[in-house]
Amino acid sequence: MWLKSSFGRRKTSLEQLGELETELMERAWAHREVTVRDVYNEMHQRLAYTTLMTTLDRLYRKGLLRRRREGKAYFYSAALTEQQYRESLTGHFFEMVLHDSENSSAILSRFVEAVSETDEEMLEKLDEIVKAKRKKLSRSE
């Protein structure tokens, strides 16, 4: 059971990005729109056409690229800006560390940990008291 829970968990698209995928994303950001042929012309010494086609298709399926068809060719463009991607990646890593009980092993002292709806209600109550106290203080001044 623990094996299943540790290794059977479906990874999100951001976790799964490999070196080639990252490189292709960088090209999509740089050129705004790319075809498999464009990328192949730049990378043909290292990679086969089919590898690039499969990888671009995988990025599209992960929701990181958009695509439109023109004739027989697909034109790929990034679904996220580089800034959004970096933000999601950092945020994702942080969330992963905070929320995955397996990954809660980071040695950190946090001002606020994860906040649930129950916590939110408690914070509302605290807010009412804080506002009342501040009002009282400003009146006395």
């Binding site: 945020g91 969330e95 905070l98 929320h99 009980s101 809660s104 001002f111 606020v112 940990e113 994860a114 906040v115 649930s116 709806e117 916590d119 939110e120 914070l123 605290l126 807010d127 008291i129 804080v130």
Partner: peptide, 22 residues
């Protein structure tokens, strides 16, 4: 208290709604 409320709400809004079970 104000700092806790504001940061707590930010965390809540940013989707950190899961409880850190550990």
């Amino acid at each position: 208290s104000s700092a806790l409320i504001k940061v707590g709400r930010l965390s809540f809004q940013r989707g950190s709604t899961l409880l850190a079970a550990s």
